[in-house]
Structures are given as structure tokens and as C-alpha cells.
Amino acid sequence: MHELSIVMSIVELASAQASHHDAAVIEEIELDIGCLSGIEMDSFDFAWKQAVKRTILENARRTVNRIEGRALCLDCNTDFTMEHLYDGCPNCGSHLSQIRSGKELKLRSLVLPD
């Protein structure tokens, strides 16, 4: 249940940003969570409901961009969709690959009252 720690980090980061901008409330929050980032979305949603209670994010509208996992095969240079970390290259079968996207775990933006 590391998702709870992640949500708590988000609350901390977002609160710091809001106080920097003198905002008492966050209206919207946008997150990038890659499909290979190790976040289980059901657990994340569950943790979110609990962890944002009585925080500045309690009533914020949340948008999560799920970033597709993509990797580059280091043997044949094929760029492919990686659904699981153990997926091999669809062209040559090699497992030697470099992940190009899908590991994102990022607070992208906030919407605050002006």
C-alpha cells in the first residue's frame, strides 16, 4: 500500500504550491501516472479518498493522465508498447530494452482561485 505514501506526498507538494500562491483551496489537480510506474490505480483511488480528507485537496477535481509504457529494443531498435515490465520486443523477442515512457509519477498542474 505504498499508494498511500504517494498520495500523502502529493498532498504535501500541492499544499506547498497553494500556500506559495496564497490559495486557500485547490480547485483542480492534474497528475501524470505512467502505466509502468508501479501504482495500482484501485489502491490509489482508495488511498486518495482517505488521505485528502480535511486537506486543501478535499474537494479538488482530479485528472490523471495514464502514460502508456513504451520501450526501445536495444537489439533491433524497435519502438514498442510495453504493457508489463517482462514484455519482450515484438520484432526480435529480445528483453534488452530501454523504457522511454510509462514510469512517470508527476504533479503536472493545479488550478487555483485567482
Binding site: I6, S9, I10, E12, L13, A14, Q17, H21, E27, L31, L105, K106, L107, R108, S109, L110, V111, L112, P113, D114
Partner: peptide, 24 residues
């Protein structure tokens, strides 16, 4: 160093672009 811009009247968007695990 974030970047802010207005979307609709009375609201502003703050582009944070920060890694959630940054602190760790």
C-alpha cells in the same frame, strides 16, 4: 519555478511539473 496562466476569469493554472517522489 512554476508557471502560471489564466484559464477562465477568477482562476489560474499553475504548471508545477514536479516529480511526486522528488522529496525522497
Amino acid at each position: 519555478h512554476d508557471h502560471t496562466h489564466e484559464t477562465s476569469p477568477g482562476k489560474k493554472v499553475v504548471d508545477v511539473e514536479q516529480d511526486i517522489l522528488l522529496e525522497n
